[in-house]
Amino acid sequence: MEKPGGGGVLSAKEAFEKLEKVGEGTYGKVYRAREKATGKIVALKKTRLHEDEEGVPPTTLREVSILRMLSRDPHVVRLMDVKQGQNKEGKTVLYLVFEYMDTDLKKFIRSFRQTGQTVPPQTIKSLMYQLCKGVAFCHGHGILHRDLKPHNLLMDPKTMMLKIADLGLARAFTVPIKKYTHEILTLWYRAPEVLLGATHYSMAVDIWSVGCIFAELVTKQALFPGDSELQQLLHIFRLLGTPNEDVWPGVSKLMNWHEYPQWNPQSLSTAVPSLDELGLDLLSQMLKYEPSKRISAKKAMEHAYFDDLDKRHL
């Protein structure tokens, strides 16, 4: 594995055959590729190191370091190798070699939406359990994901295994810089305390995202599809009621707090009509306004909603 710089250059280019571009990660492009030595299909994430400025971006540094730490969990996408190479202009690029997954949860849900079928309840339960397990693993290692959304949850449609990916924003502080092409997507799964400008991030922001994904799996539609930060908040308030100091102590002191239209809370069953009682209870605990009251991923795995799930292979 360890080779000098020159060898690294040849090794990176010769070792893999790029098959097709499959997406854009947080920093850089993602390709489906075949490892020539083994014929194995991998996901190759290419990141330029901007060596004419300040070297390796801190985000890349953290993502790789964190992925190295988390790779032993089956529900986090596995980082197999890291290679350094050079592109045509002689700039250094970093290749992150991941296990390849055929699809993601976004495509999975969309396929059901197109056929008009509902996702089978046991499939939803299995996927949600795996998601909670992966999130609990991350949180148990002190890692917040902060950008959980269906697009970042990779899936194998044959085995229904689910893995968390794209930890480029994973960290414990610092408000992310806006990327306007991503903004609309990530807004939908953003916790209300983030939208209201809370400076203290906590693991609860990931749980909120998990709750939104849960509802979307059931209805095949986004639960809170806002197209601006204000609209995102209003979507949330219309369903869960406009928060006040009684249900969320300290909310009126958050930086972005204003006077909002007053809505009363609606029952979650109006938004997710086909979910059973236990599922609705779990969902309501994931969508608590007060971050400290939101259920943790670890406790969610123990919720009665998952009692009848066969967890042996998960």
Partner: peptide, 17 residues
Amino acid sequence: MLGMEKLILRKLKFRLN
């Protein structure tokens, strides 16, 4: 310096935590 950065990262296999 940037060369040393890449070298250290390679040797430590990006394990900074």
